[in-house]
């Protein structure tokens, strides 16, 4: 993206991209066929495109540095931005299905990089359907953390299989998470909160973090405060339901 293009959509007062240029549909159907490019395999992910600071030239995949955090359904990217400075040496990616929202996050990150030289080089975003293409992005055991913050609830019984946490999808998440890796989930929809907790609880490769561990983890505090959706819920005084689980070795 050229600089002039970028400037056009940045707000004069804040230097951040203006949301009204990024109107998007409320929901995409995750079951549909896609038209965005999908990397053939994790080794085909072009890190130089996402993290030019760490990977100055493309095609050079010798670095052992890999993406370790994934924010699934990242929306407008608030969590990534908070995590970026908290874990400045960790590469993270947001996965988002809506193209306009993805474009917004891209420009938001570029603007932050411009305004804060040397910072925000470790975060990026990709437009994809996480429910279909997680194995195309991450190798076995590559991830340390996965985030599912305020996912779409899909209330109807027949749409439960569109939920981004499900018993079968947890098999894939268990595959890309290393042993000890953590899944963070939060929602303001009680029914969905119960569903996510039950899916994790019943899965043979996940165990709940203890109260103590939750308190000690600085990331837990961000779940309800760092994202746009979380802030909206907080403004309206809504309740939230979180489930945080660790990847274990199957017995």
């Amino acid at each position: 993206m050229s600089e002039t293009e970028l400037n056009l959509t940045l707000s004069k007062s804040t230097g951040l991209p203006r949301k009204r240029f990024y109107r998007a549909r409320a929901h995409s159907n995750p079951l549909s066929d896609s038209h965005f490019p999908v990397p053939t395999s994790p080794s085909h992910v072009d890190y130089s495109l996402h993290y030019p600071h760490y990977f100055p030239s493309s095609g050079q995949i010798n670095s052992s540095k890999k993406i370790q955090f994934a924010d699934i359904g990242c929306g407008f990217g608030g969590l990534l931005i908070s995590l970026s400075t908290l874990f400045p040496e960790t590469l993270m990616i947001g996965m988002e299905l809506r193209d306009k929202v993805t474009e917004y996050v891209k420009e938001r990150i570029l603007a932050l990089r411009l305004a804060n030289p040397g910072q925000y080089q470790n975060i990026s975003v990709v437009r994809t359907n996480s429910m279909k293409y997680i194995p195309n992005y991450f190798e076995k055991g590559q991830l340390l953390k996965m985030f599912f913050l305020f996912p779409d609830p899909h209330f109807k019984e027949k749409n439960h299989r569109r939920r981004v946490i499900s018993p079968h999808l947890l098999d894939e998440y268990a595959y890309v998470l290393g042993v000890g890796g953590i899944i963070y989930t939060i929602t303001d929809v009680e029914e969905l909160g119960e569903w996510m907790r039950a899916c994790l609880e019943n899965h043979p490769m996940f165990e709940a973090l203890t109260e103590k561990e939750l308190e000690a983890d600085p990331v837990v505090k961000l779940l309800s405060s760092a994202t746009e959706e979380g802030q909206k819920v907080a403004r309206n005084g809504g309740l939230t339901f979180q489930a945080v689980y660790r990847r274990t070795t199957p017995s």
């Binding site: 994790p42 194995p135 018993p167 098999d171 268990a174």
Partner: peptide
């Protein structure tokens, strides 16, 4: 159909599901 081959450990109690993925064989286009 999505160019993906999944290799899953066939468990001792298959009726409880096969949760442990050994690998994905990715390369077909």
């Amino acid at each position: 159909r999505d160019n993906k081959i999944r290799v899953t450990i066939f468990p001792k109690s298959p009726l409880d599901g096969a949760h442990e993925i050994q690998s994905f064989c990715l390369g077909h286009t």
